[in-house]
Design a protein around this nucleic acid. Structure first.
Length: 768
DNA sequence: GCGGGTTCTCTTTTT
DNA sequence: GAGAACCCGC
């Protein structure tokens, strides 16, 4: 054992020599608070890996005392793999995982302390939304006003900032906000939602973090236990942490103060999930004796790509100063490709890959196609299939979101935790057993009225509902009881197989002989295989079904083992973070698509989209393409598209207009205008058509709201009134229109011209 | 309670 | 364009 260690140590020391001075500092400065600002392609994962190895070998730290938090399971798996190659099996005891998975694991042990069962269920966002819909219905509210998505994101935002429903309801600012949005019942929905989750023994994604905070706040002995255990805490992708996550890490590191955060503010792209870029910008304030290292040398990309990326990101105001540079070769300019339609865009991308692959002897896996939204993959896929190019899609509709998978999982969930309301509703009448919506409603109402547990009501169905449905429910309860016994006695795989068969689910699918039906059947088999693998894996100590469910609830499609065949990668820019490819296509570079129109509410939003653009750009090692289409099918409609404003923000020296342009439409129409400074191509000068009036002037500074800005109740807003908008500044109401249940106000703003705003969204201050 | 047809809604990113 | 919600007749 000692021999092995010293051999690895020797090995590691060789590796140390291969690091540049900054990387080495980041690895060797192990104690006290450290912030590593790691520019794109600066060898961040390598540094993190060696840092852990260094802790174990050079400093003699027990791997058991190291906690390493990442954002995706994939990143965690990658890190674990790399550490084992550098530091050997000893590193296995390091706690490594996503925030959600690590704290779910802790909560599984400690949950009873805060009143939850240890076999609590984790609700995914579909479950959450369904529960919200139920609550909105029960409260007899308009589900067009209280849309599940909007309500959930509001609640999620509150939880990520550790605002309880009580605080939420008592806060006058929140109240004013909700009233201005004409959603005054939001606080009550939050309260009921939380109550129902609790009764169902369930936590949503945000609760895993929220409740960890509660646990650490109310049970100092528990906090102390983990503080002692995690002597070294590391956080990767720190720019994407939200307040809830940040406070957990801060608490954990409070005793030993060995906290190391790694991140790049320029790659912060998860504000919609509550990530707060201020965490990284203000980290220094929390730790005055902070040691900061900047990794600025990019090892990944050509000089051209690094320059282009820098020219993009420098437009942002909110950022830490750094100077990313590379000693790599110049490389080619970025190719800008215009297509007439989205399908032509796909064709050009596919044929370019086909040619490049053959002339440069590249593999499919050297190419990636990145887009802003998942729905854009369709047109690209079609084109790739026509040329027989192998591709794989990362993300998109997840395996775990498929109906058949959720159905089987719901059976397993309900068996393990028979108060899980969402699981119950899913399976009680599937396959059909004559228990309709009316009976289900009666059961739920009975549980609510008598303040009884769902499972108790189901077992005593005769006392609450009559006739046929009651005896059907008896059979259902008997079946679940049988499942419970199986779960207790057998391992996850045996129990799950038995549940799949006995429930009739497998038969139901088997009888469907359509292609989709066959697919569904195979998917269920695949899930069972996954369970088998889980059981067979030596590393998993707890082989119960409950343990497996815990594990799987936090997996996403990105984490599933894909075939290792050589394939082109298609994914959203968000999923591409941390990856690299020789050639990258960023498709759909159209205004309103990228930057997304939904995002364009404020300067902060624009800056986040720009960071996303930066992330996309810096994935490429050798060659980068931007493509856009002049028309695109979206939601079944053919839209006219404007090229993205981002195209104009890239340094003109870095872009050339591609020869691969629209076959149907040659550039005559746009010959006069053009990308400022873009070089000419042999086939003509293709430019960017401008329509400035549809754009928010980027150069113009957005209004800063008055210090006492507070949205007014806009129910009685009328024409001629003066208002202040937090982003657009002062303006005068022109007219108010009612469209269905929506009210719209047309406002003439001092600096931004006339805008029509939906009153349920706009936060306006009425000036008396 | 069920099945089939139709209408409506949501179209941003993920743990 | 897809999936959920809704409606209607049996």
């Amino acid at each position: 054992m000692i021999l092995v260690s010293s051999f690895l140590l020797q090995n590691k020391m060789d590796y140390l020599d291969s690091l540049n001075p900054e990387q080495r500092l980041a690895v060797e400065h192990t104690d006290g608070p450290v912030m590593i600002i790691a520019g794109a392609g600066s060898g961040k994962t390598r540094v993190l890996t060696y840092r852990i190895a260094h802790l174990i070998f050079a400093k003699g730290v027990d791997a058991f005392n190291i906690l390493s938090l990442t954002f995706t399971n994939k990143a965690a798996a990658e890190m674990r793999h790399r550490i084992e190659t550098v530091a050997g099996l000893e590193a296995r005891n390091t706690w490594m995982g996503t925030f959600h998975s690590v704290f779910a694991k802790i909560l599984r042990v400690e949950a009873p302390k805060i009143g939850y069962p240890s076999n609590f269920t984790i609700y995914d966002s579909d479950d959450s939304k369904s529960l919200i819909r139920t609550i909105v219905k029960e409260m007899r509210l308009d589900d067009k006003v209280y849309k599940a998505n909007a309500v959930l994101s509001r609640i999620s935002g509150a939880k990520n900032r550790l605002i309880t429903w009580k605080v939420y309801q008592d806060d006058p600012f929140v109240k004013a906000d909700d009233e201005a949005a004409m959603k005054p019942k939001m606080g009550e929905i939050y309260q009921r939602y939380q109550d129902r989750l609790f009764k169902a023994g369930a936590m949503d994604f945000d609760d895993l973090l929220f409740n960890t905070n509660i646990l650490f706040r109310d049970h100092l002995d528990v906090l102390n236990k983990y503080q002692q255990r995690f002597r070294y805490v590391m956080v990767d992708e720190f720019q994407d942490t939200n307040l809830s996550q940040y406070l957990i890490t801060k608490k954990l590191a409070a005793v030993h103060q060995n906290i190391c955060v790694v991140g790049d503010d320029a790659q912060s792209i998860y504000a919609f999930r509550g990530a707060d870029i201020q965490n990284i910008l203000n980290f220094e304030k929390d730790y005055p004796d902070l040691f900061v290292v900047k990794l600025e040398q990019n090892y990944r990309s050509t000089k051209m790509i690094v320059d282009a990326a820098n020219s993009i990101i420098e437009k942002n105001k909110a950022q830490l100063k750094k100077n990313v540079w590379t000693s790599n070769g110049d490389g080619d300019q970025i190719e800008l490709v215009k297509a007439s339609t989205d399908s032509e865009e796909g064709r050009i991308v596919a044929s370019t890959i086909f040619e490049e692959r053959n002339t440069k002897k590249l593999n499919n896996s050297d190419f990636a196609i990145l887009y802003r939204t998942n729905s854009q993959s369709r047109a690209i896929e079609e084109a790739l299939r026509k040329l027989n190019l192998t591709y794989k899609i990362v993300g998109g509709l997840s395996f775990y979101q498929r109906k058949e998978i959720k159905d089987l999982m719901a059976y397993m969930r309900f068996t393990v935790n028979p108060v899980d309301e969402e699981a119950f509703k899913r399976i009680v009448n599937y396959p059909k057993r004559g228990i309709g919506d009316t009976s289900v409603d009666k059961i739920l109402v009975a549980a609510f009225d008598h303040d009884m547990q769902l499972w108790e009501v189901v077992q005593n169905a005769h006392s609450f509902i009559g006739g046929r449905a009651a005896s059907q429910l008896d059979d259902f309860a008997t079946m679940i009881k049988a499942f419970k016994i199986e779960v207790e006695r057998k391992d996850a795989f045996e129990a799950a197989s038995s549940i799949a068969k006995q429930s009739g689910l497998l038969r139901e699918l088997y009888e469907d002989k359509t292609i989709e039906g066959l697919n569904r059947y195979e998917n269920v088999q695949e899930l069972l295989n996954a369970i088998k693998e889980y059981v067979d894996n030596e590393e998993n100590e707890d082989k119960s079904l409950g343990a497996f469910l815990q594990e799987i609830a936090l997996l996403t499609d990105n984490d599933r083992d894909k075939d290792t065949t050589d394939a082109i990668t298609l994914m959203t820019i968000h999923s591409s973070k941390g990856l690299e490819f020789k050639q990258v296509f960023v498709v759909g570079m159209e205004e309103d698509l990228f930057p997304s129109q939904m995002m364009m509410q404020s300067r902060e939003d624009l800056e986040e989209e720009r960071r996303l653009f930066y992330v996309a750009t810096t994935r490429a090692m050798d060659k980068l393409y931007f493509t856009y289409a002049l028309t695109r099918y979206r939601y079944g409609r053919l839209l006219n598209c404007e090229p993205s404003r981002f195209l104009e923000e890239v340094s003109p020296d870095c872009i050339k207009v591609s020869k691969k342009v629209s076959s149907k439409e040659m550039p005559g129409a746009f010959r006069k205008e053009g990308v400022p400074g873009a070089s000419e191509s042999s086939s003509g000068y293709i430019g960017i058509k401008k329509k400035p009036e549809t754009r928010m002037p980027t150069a113009m500074k957005l209004h800063t709201p008055s210090p006492d800005f507070k949205p007014s109740n806009t129910n009685n807003l009328q024409a001629e009134q003066l208002v202040e908008h937090p982003k657009f500044g002062f303006g005068k109401v022109q007219k108010i229109e009612t469209e269905g249940i929506n009210r719209k106000a047309t406002i003439q703003f001092e600096h931004f011209g006339e805008k029509t705003l939906l009153l349920s969204f706009a936060k306006l201050r009425i000036i008396d």
